[in-house]
């Protein structure tokens, strides 16, 4: 049957059986080569150049559908998230307003600080740029000078109390002698009883001395010393120091009173320069001290 059918229907030279054997063997050889030696990768690559686009074409509708589906899903998600974000935005806007108010507040406070608009004294903020290298000379250099209207004799303080006094002014710098400098004196009063005295620097960080205080003077440990305003250099009532130790030795005429400055004389970096100098009338030649204090009868300290 094989031969007759092939003879009738096939115009090929070879019978189907022969062809089957040929192609079957060819397939097996190909399979063997492909499996064993991987020599056919080149042929496969070349052929896939033809099949790949077609495969892509077949996959495309599905992909397209997926993409469209994706698009709508994303679209829906975007709409919902947009609404959510809008809500969040209104909420946040309210909070932002509060923040703005706070910021404005802060700005205001800052400007207040910068301008040092205090009721009684005008001040300006200055920063220490150099400290004196000599350990005996307690001096620092600030970054504000004559160009910022700093004058010699102006008082320098931090937020707690007196730090020193401007003793020399450069165009962009000013030299400040600290109250702990050995040659520096501040006229002070004891806050508790108004006792006037002078406080001297000891040349030592964080130590001041009340010299020439009589043994019987009413000074106790813990007394607060504030500027008396006498001599017109320092304004009245700025805290200067606190008495830490009082030594009364009968062998000496004067008591030895040690104090520590209230201001962070050697700690701060930013300092305030008091711009206004208290203006007092010119001192007469007489020995009488011009004072408007009522505490004249109180015993004077030293000098």
């Amino acid at each position: 049957m094989n031969s007759s059918s092939s003879a009738r229907y096939s115009s090929n030279k070879f019978s189907p059986t022969v062809r089957l054997i040929f192609f079957g063997l060819l397939s097996l050889v190909l399979l063997f080569i492909d499996f064993q030696y991987k020599y056919l990768e080149f042929t496969r690559t070349k052929l896939s150049l033809f099949t790949n686009p077609l495969q892509q074409l077949v996959i495309m509708p599905g992909k397209l559908w997926q993409e469209v589906d994706n698009f709508f899903t994303i679209h829906n998600r975007l709409i919902s998230s947009n609404a959510e974000l809008r809500q969040l935005h209104t909420l946040d806007a309210a909070q932002l307003k509060q923040l703005e108010v706070l910021e404005a507040d802060n700005q205001h406070l800052r400007s207040l600080l910068a301008l040092q608009q205090r009721a009684d004294y005008t001040m300006q903020l200055a920063e220490i740029i150099y400290t004196e290298r000599n350990i005996v000379n307690r001096k620092v250099l600030l970054d504000k000078g004559a160009l910022a209207n700093v004058l010699t004799g102006q008082v320098v303080m931090d937020d707690n109390g007196i730090v020193g006094q401007v003793t020399r002014v450069y165009p962009r710098m000013s030299e400040v002698t600290l109250i702990t400098d050995k040659n520096h004196t501040v006229p002070v009063q004891i806050l508790r009883n108004g006792l006037r005295t002078l406080i001297f620097g000891s040349g030592d960080t964080g130590e001041l001395i009340l010299r020439y205080t009589s043994i019987s003077a009413d000074i106790q440990e813990g007394d607060l010393l504030v500027t008396s305003g006498i001599d017109g250099v320092y304004p009245v009532g700025l805290p200067v120091a606190k008495v830490t130790r009082v030594e009364r030795d009968p062998a000496y005429p004067f008591a030895r009173v040690l104090c520590t400055p209230i201001a962070g004389v050697d700690k701060q970096r930013q300092l305030l320069i008091l711009s206004t100098l208290p203006t007092l009338p010119e001192r007469p030649e007489a020995t009488q001290e011009p004072t408007n204090r009522r505490s004249k009868n109180i015993k004077r300290g030293g000098k």
């Binding site: 397939s27 097996l28 399979l31 896939s48 099949t51």
Partner: peptide
């Protein structure tokens, strides 16, 4: 080629 099977596998079957 399209199936990434070994060359000749489908060919044998179809033959």
């Amino acid at each position: 080629v399209a199936d990434a099977s070994f060359l000749g596998q489908h060919a044998l079957v179809y033959a």
